[in-house]
């Protein structure tokens, strides 16, 4: 039998916080995007842990859907990044202030 779910939940919370901190601090758009992936993975770990703790397969089904949505999000997000970099090479998140109206 695995460890208690509390340990997994604590680990997921810490990983989520690290991802959130990176998202707030970094300015490279691609690294910020990776931090979003980090947060998504922490949420996935929480879902799987609760699926085991509450003995409900629905948590794992939800992780399945999260994976699909993450894949779609990565495709569209990287498309946006490519479009931005085509206009301004080496753009960081700060350079996107040109989007202001």
């Amino acid at each position: 039998m695995s460890l208690g779910g509390d340990w997994y939940l604590a680990l997921a919370a810490i990983v989520f916080s690290i991802g959130a901190f990176g998202l707030l601090v970094r300015r490279n758009i691609i690294v910020m995007f990776m931090c979003v992936e980090l947060m998504l993975n922490a949420a996935n770990l929480t879902f799987v842990t609760f699926s085991r703790m509450l003995n409900d397969i629905g948590g794992q089904s939800l992780v399945f859907f999260v994976l699909v949505v993450a894949a779609a999000e990565v495709v569209v997000g990287l498309g946006i990044i490519v479009a931005v970099h085509r206009r301004r090479a080496g753009a960081t998140a700060d350079d996107l202030h040109i989007l202001k109206g």
Binding site: S2, E37, N41, N44, S51, L67, V74, V75, L78
Partner: peptide, 26 residues
Amino acid sequence: LFVEQQADFLAAVQVIVYAGAIIVLF
């Protein structure tokens, strides 16, 4: 950690889709 919690399929999908496809895209 997924394997450790008996989520075998999701562990495989995690490796194949995330590490195999998404990171390569990045």
